[in-house]
C-alpha cells in the first residue's frame, strides 16, 4: 500500500482520533484499520438528513438550471444492467450516449455507458471515436458473493475487453461482520487488476444501513485506491439518497484534505428526475466543493433520468413542455 497521505490530524478536515498516524499506518494491520475507522467522528442521522434536506430546498432557476442540466447530462453513466441485456440493447444505448438529442447537437454526450462485462466489447465498438467511456460492473455484481479469484477474473475480463472503468462491489458480508481488512484487501487487489482502468467502488449503502457505516466504507474504499466511491448497485432499495451522498461527499473532501487525492462520487439508483439530479449537484457544490462539479469527480448512474433531463432542457430553452415521444426510448 502506497502512502497516499499526510498526517490526518494536521489537516483542516476531520482528524481521526487516537494514535497520531498517517494513512499508510491505517492500512498496516486489521487493528490499525479498525481503530482508524471506529475513530472517525460519528454521523448523526437526524442532523445529516436535515442538512441534506436543507440543501435539497435550494431553488435552482433560469441560467443556473440550464447549466445544471447540461452538467448533469455530462455526468450520467447511462446504465443497463439486466439479465435480458443484448448487444442490440447496448448498441441502442450507446447511440443515445453519444448524442442524447439528435435534434440538438448542443446537448453534451454522457460520461459513460455502464454494462455487464460480457457486453463491454459491443459497447466499446459502438462508442469508438467518442469521448464516452465504457464502464463495466464486475466482482460478481451485484451481490459480490464469490471468491476473490473469481472476482478478479471478472475484473480482468472486463478490462481485457476494453473497459475504461470498473464498478466493483465491496463484500458487504465481510464489512458487516467487522472484517474491514478483508474488504480493504479486496479493493486493493481489484485496483491492481484494473491496470489503467478507473475503479469505482460500490458500497451498496442500502445494505450498510447506517451513515457511520457509509462513512467507514467510503474510507476503506479510498484508502484501498478507489477513483470513485459509488452508492449502490441499483438492485437494492434504498439506493442513492441525498444524505448518503452528503456523507460520501464529506468523506471525499476530507480524504482529499488528508491525502491530496481527489476521489469522485457516483450516485446510482433512484435518480429519476431533473429535480433529483440538480439536488445532487447542489450537494456536490456546497459539500465537496465546486472542484467536484465535473464528470471526473461526480457521476450519476441512471437510465430514465437522461430523457427527463432532455425534456427539462427543452422546456428551459423553448419555454414549452416537450412531449413524451420527442426523445428516443432505448
Amino acid at each position: 500500500m502506497v502512502d497516499r497521505g499526510r498526517d490526518p490530524a494536521r489537516t483542516g478536515g476531520v482528524p481521526p482520533r487516537g494514535r497520531n498516524s498517517g494513512l499508510a499506518d491505517v492500512a498496516r494491520s486489521e487493528v490499525s484499520l479498525r481503530s482508524f475507522l471506529l475513530g472517525l467522528p460519528g454521523v448523526d442521522q437526524v442532523g445529516a438528513e436535515l442538512r441534506a434536506a436543507g440543501l435539497g430546498a435550494r431553488s435552482i432557476k433560469a441560467a443556473a438550471k440550464l447549466w445544471a442540466i447540461d452538467t448533469a447530462i455530462s455526468m450520467v453513466d447511462l446504465t443497463t444492467l439486466e439479465g435480458a441485456d443484448t448487444p442490440g440493447k447496448v448498441r441502442a444505448l450507446c447511440g443515445k450516449a453519444r448524442r442524447p438529442d439528435p435534434a440538438d447537437p448542443g446537448v453534451p454526450p454522457v460520461a459513460a455507458i455502464c454494462v455487464y462485462p460480457d457486453l463491454v466489447p459491443f459497447a466499446k465498438a459502438a462508442l469508438a471515436g467518442s469521448p464516452v467511456k465504457v464502464a463495466s460492473v464486475a466482482t460478481s455484481f451485484p451481490s459480490g458473493r464469490a471468491c476473490l479469484p473469481v472476482k478478479l477474473a471478472d475484473v480482468a475480463d472486463a478490462v481485457a475487453a476494453g473497459a475504461d472503468e470498473v464498478d466493483m462491489v465491496i463484500d458487504r458480508g465481510a464489512f458487516l461482520a467487522g472484517h474491514y481488512g478483508v474488504v480493504l484487501e479486496e479493493v486493493q487487489a481489484v485496483k491492481e487488476s484494473c491496470g489503467p482502468a478507473r475503479l469505482k467502488v460500490i458500497l451498496e449503502t442500502g445494505e450498510l444501513v447506517t451513515y457511520d457505516n457509509v462513512r467507514r466504507a467510503s474510507w476503506i474504499a479510498m484508502v484501498g485506491g478507489a477513483d470513485f466511491v459509488k452508492t449502490s448497485t441499483g438492485k437494492v432499495s434504498p439506493a442513492a439518497t441525498p444524505p448518503v451522498a452528503l456523507v460520501m461527499l464529506e468523506a471525499v473532501r476530507e480524504f482529499a484534505d488528508v491525502s491530496g487525492t481527489a476521489v469522485g462520487v457516483k450516485v446510482a439508483g433512484g435518480v429519476r428526475t431533473t429535480k433529483d439530479a440538480i439536488k445532487y449537484l447542489v450537494l456536490v457544490n456546497e459539500v465537496a466543493g465546486e472542484a467536484w462539479l465535473e464528470p471526473d469527480r461526480f457521476r450519476i448512474g441512471a437510465s430514465g433520468l437522461l430523457n427527463d433531463l432532455l425534456m427539462q432542457r427543452y422546456k428551459q430553452r423553448r419555454g414549452a413542455y416537450a412531449g413524451s415521444q420527442d426523445f428516443s426510448v432505448e
Binding site: S59, I60, K61, A62, A64, K65, W67, T71, E290, L293
Partner: peptide
C-alpha cells in the same frame, strides 16, 4: 468565477 452560480430565485 464560480462554476455553479445560483440565479436569483425570489
Amino acid at each position: 468565477a464560480p462554476r455553479f452560480v445560483y440565479a436569483p430565485a425570489p
